[in-house]
Every structure is written in structure tokens, then in C-alpha cells.
């Protein structure tokens, strides 16, 4: 094992990430073997990808927040709020689709800015901010849509159907390209730019960074803003694959997004984040959801299993850190 860890290729990729990919492949194989024809390869990959799209953006977003040592579990309801409000504008007020899409991301950005401002400038604990903005997002979406569900245009829609091209064009999964591109950009921002450096450092020791003359409040807020924008994009991919959104929901995706992130090796204490890990983590969570459904189990079991996974992943992180100290 030690020898394996010292291998330059393994070192470069990270042992954890290799293990995670292994788990991913193994899971797929097990599902296929056990379920047989109930788990058709093509369809399963397609539905997994559909899940990866929106969940991936949520996870990438929350990775930035967790890197600062904070948390945001309003992302699921905020995603629904974005899709609902902008979708309602399109269907009921005749706002053009392109504008609605921009609006969708902007709403996410607004929530992110609001959360970030409260956390960094007003020193409100992140979990309280999350609870509050979760409620506000749900309430806002319900009030705005008068508690009706909203359906985004289908691909057969002659005017606005084009927006589905973000997910697939003639069966080609464009979505995966967009997702991976955004993930790479996120990675570059986090590891290779000034804001990313500051976000990681302040997650590790905020006071030392502040005393170096860095405006920690600004950069902390930026992390929440990045998260908010990515949540807005996630909303677009959600409606582009699942069409309809209902007000009052979205909580369960919080957990799944955080699960993907923590599983990938991002530490809840802050300062340590892995975009690559998050991407693989998201694939695992998404595949798991498909597997659970193929087993004939429902949303209930999905939630229970995801809950347990997060507990295990976080506990692994906590105890690994304790051993180090």
C-alpha cells in the first residue's frame, strides 16, 4: 500500500480519487450483474448523466462554500426557486426563453450574494443563514407561482425547444461536455487564481489571512456568490432534463450535493477541496440513485442511503483529521 502511494502516477492523481473511480466502476458492474436486464447499460448511463448534470453543478458550487469552512444547505430549494420564478416569468408573462435562462442564473447569484453577505459581513453562522434562505427560497417560489408547478418548454416546442440543446443535441450528450468544462474552470479558479487561493487559505485559517492584509470578507462572500451562480445553472439543467418543477421541494438535493462533495475529499473543516473528487463523487451518487431505482426501491430508500453515506464520509474526514493531530 505504502509503495503504491509513492508511485508518481498515483501521487499525481491521488490515491483517493483512483479508489473512487474504482468504486464507481465496481458499482456499475455490480448493478449490471445483479439486476441484469433491469439495468440496461445505455439507458442507465443516460439517466445517470441526466442526474449528474444538475447535481454536479450543485456539488461544484457547494465545494467552494465548504472550502471556506462554511456550509450552504439552501442550494436545493434555491435551485427550485430559480427554475420556478424564471420559468413562471416565461410561461405566464411571456418573457423570452433566453432571458428567462439568464434570469434563472441571476436569481441564484442573488441568493448566493445574500447568503455570503450575511455570513461574511454580518457574521451570522452559515447554518442559520442556510435555514433562513431555504425558507425564503421556498416561500418566494410558492408566492410567485401561486403554488403552481411550472413546466419548461419541451424539445418539440418550436420557439423555445432549442434550450434543451444544453443537455443533448440529436442524442449526443452535450451536457457532459458543458459540465466537465465548468468543472475544469472551477478547478482553475480554485487552484490557479488569486480568489481561489484566498478562499482555500481563509478556510484553513481566516484570521492569519486577514492579518496578511487580505479582505477576507470579500473573498468569503465571493465563494457564496460562485455557489449561487452554479446553483442557477444547475436549475437550468434540472428543467432541461426533468421539465417540471414544483414549489416547496428541493431539500433532498442538498444532501446529495454535499454527499458528492464530501465523498470526493473536500473537508468539512475548510481549507481543503478537491474539484476532481467532487466530480467523481457526483457520478457515484447519481449512479447510486439509478441503481436504487432499478432495484425497485423508491425515493425513501434513496434518501436513507444518501444520509448514511454522508455520515460515513464526514466521519471518515473527522477521524482522519483527529489521527493527524
Amino acid at each position: 500500500m505504502e509503495k503504491l502511494k509513492q508511485n508518481p502516477i498515483v501521487k499525481k492523481l491521488g490515491l483517493n480519487r483512483i479508489l473512487l473511480v474504482g468504486i464507481l466502476i465496481l458499482m456499475f458492474a455490480v448493478f449490471k450483474v445483479v439486476l441484469g436486464s433491469k439495468f440496461p447499460v445505455g439507458d442507465s448511463i443516460k439517466s445517470t448523466l441526466n442526474y449528474v448534470y444538475f447535481l454536479g453543478f450543485l456539488s461544484l458550487g457547494v465545494t467552494f462554500v465548504i472550502a471556506t469552512g462554511g456550509i450552504d444547505f439552501s442550494i436545493g430549494p434555491v435551485m427550485f426557486c430559480c427554475a420556478l420564478v424564471s420559468g413562471y416569468c416565461m410561461t405566464s408573462y411571456g418573457v423570452p426563453c433566453a432571458v428567462a435562462m439568464v434570469l434563472c442564473v441571476l436569481i441564484g447569484l442573488c441568493f448566493g450574494t445574500f447568503n455570503g453577505w450575511l455570513v461574511s459581513y454580518m457574521s451570522v453562522p452559515p447554518f442559520i443563514v442556510s435555514m433562513a434562505s431555504m425558507n425564503i427560497a421556498k416561500g418566494l417560489a410558492s408566492v410567485f407561482t401561486k403554488t403552481q408547478s411550472v413546466s419548461w418548454p419541451l424539445s418539440s416546442d418550436p420557439v423555445n425547444g432549442w434550450f434543451r440543446n444544453i443537455v443533448s443535441v440529436n442524442g449526443f450528450p452535450v451536457g457532459i461536455l458543458i459540465f466537465l468544462t465548468v468543472a475544469v474552470i472551477c478547478g482553475i479558479v480554485l487552484y490557479r487564481t488569486k480568489p481561489g487561493r484566498y478562499i482555500l487559505c481563509l478556510g484553513s485559517n481566516s484570521e492569519a489571512v486577514r492579518l496578511s492584509g487580505v479582505n477576507t470578507r470579500k473573498w468569503r462572500m465571493l465563494a457564496y456568490m460562485i455557489c449561487g451562480s452554479l446553483v442557477g445553472i444547475a436549475a437550468l439543467f434540472f428543467v432541461a432534463t426533468y421539465t417540471t418543477v414544483q414549489p416547496g421541494y428541493g431539500d433532498q438535493y442538498n444532501n446529495e450535493a454535499i454527499a458528492g462533495c464530501v465523498m470526493g475529499g473536500t473537508s468539512m473543516v475548510g481549507g481543503l477541496a478537491s474539484i476532481g473528487g467532487t466530480v467523481i463523487g457526483v457520478f457515484i451518487i447519481s449512479l447510486l440513485q439509478q441503481g436504487i431505482m432499478a432495484f425497485g426501491l423508491g425515493k425513501g430508500q434513496q434518501m436513507i442511503i444518501t444520509g448514511i453515506i454522508v455520515i460515513v464520509a464526514v466521519y471518515a474526514d473527522v477521524s482522519a483529521r483527529r489521527r493527524k493531530n
Partner: peptide
């Protein structure tokens, strides 16, 4: 607590105040 970000490298700490 206040001097360096101990979980980061020498490089990251050296350039912390001068990123630009």
C-alpha cells in the same frame, strides 16, 4: 493562529500578502 496558514505550503504562505 495568526501568523501563518499552517495547513498550507511555504509558497502559499510566502505569497499570501502579495498575490497580485
Amino acid at each position: 493562529r495568526y501568523g501563518c496558514v499552517v495547513q498550507k505550503s511555504c509558497i502559499e504562505n510566502t505569497t499570501l500578502a502579495t498575490m497580485e
